[in-house]
């Protein structure tokens, strides 16, 4: 099945694969990408698949928010940042609530919101040369929208250090701190590792998987949509400040 071509959704047996497909823009989250992802994720509610793999086309997984779209000086639209962030927040809540067990197969850069997206998934697979991290604070931004997921994935202390230090790390370091669960040697190895992990997960009973996931969601507060939406509003507030806009402006033009 194909949605808009910005997001591809294919199902083979019990395994669905969602591919973010804007390789020229390093799969940055634009309105188009986010709408495509919402549509794809919505369609999975009636799917027989028990596993969902999320990955990116080309060299990046996702470079995070579409910075050009949220730079008011370029877009002329002061509400775009808030709308994109809210859409991302709602998307993460939807993915978390899916019956399917989700795998992020991080083929390349997973930055900021892109890295946050991996933390929403149940399992993250990557390779040694991938780049992951939260450089929001380096750009004067605030990763509040994804922070609840990062804290759930890494624990409060490790998440705190990763988000306050900023920067990015390679796949090996991400594996060492628990951001990545399974690590392939290189990009080629990632494809076969993803297939074998997806098949292994899909060998579990679909009801056993969804019941387990749903209980974990309940126990760890994943269903607290108010927290994630509050995070989105906070990220949007920081994004709109002159300081953040100025930093973004010089970064985008670089």
């Amino acid at each position: 099945m194909m949605m808009t071509d910005a997001v591809l959704l294919e199902t083979e047996g019990l395994i669905a694969t969602l591919t973010i497909n804007r390789p020229d823009a390093r799969n940055a989250m634009s309105v188009e990408i986010l709408e495509g992802m919402h549509e794809a994720v919505d369609s999975l509610r009636d799917s027989e698949a028990s596993v969902l793999v999320i990955t990116g086309a080309g060299r990046a997984f996702s470079a995070g928010m579409d910075l050009k779209a949220v730079l008011i000086e370029l877009s002329g639209d002061a509400t775009m940042g808030e709308r994109l962030l809210r859409s991302l927040a709602e998307l993460t809540l939807k993915i978390r609530a899916l019956d399917q067990v989700t795998i992020a197969s991080v083929n390349g850069a997973a930055i900021g919101g892109g890295c946050g997206l991996t933390c929403v998934c149940d399992v993250t697979i990557s390779h040694a040369d991938a780049k992951l991290g939260f450089p929001e604070v380096d750009l004067g931004l605030c990763p509040a929208v994804i922070a609840p997921w990062v804290v759930k994935k890494l624990g409060g202390g490790v998440a705190r250090a990763a988000m306050l230090r900023g920067g990015v790390m390679d796949g090996r370091e991400a594996h060492a701190i628990g951001l990545v669960d399974w690590l392939a040697e290189d990009r080629e190895g990632l494809v076969s590792l993803t297939r074998s992990v997806a098949e292994r997960l899909a060998s579990g009973g679909p009801k056993a998987l969804s019941t387990t996931k749903s209980l974990l969601n309940e126990l760890d507060g994943s269903l607290d949509s108010a927290l994630v939406l509050k995070g989105a509003a906070l990220s949007a507030r920081v994004l709109a400040t002159p300081e953040a806009q100025a930093q973004l402006g010089s970064f985008v033009k670089r």
Partner: peptide
């Protein structure tokens, strides 16, 4: 960390304190 733009970094710490 001290060289990073202030609002984003300070807001991030405050939010993490609220979450945890």
């Amino acid at each position: 960390i001290a060289q990073k733009p202030g609002v984003g970094c300070l807001t991030t710490k405050r939010w993490l304190n609220e979450i945890c």
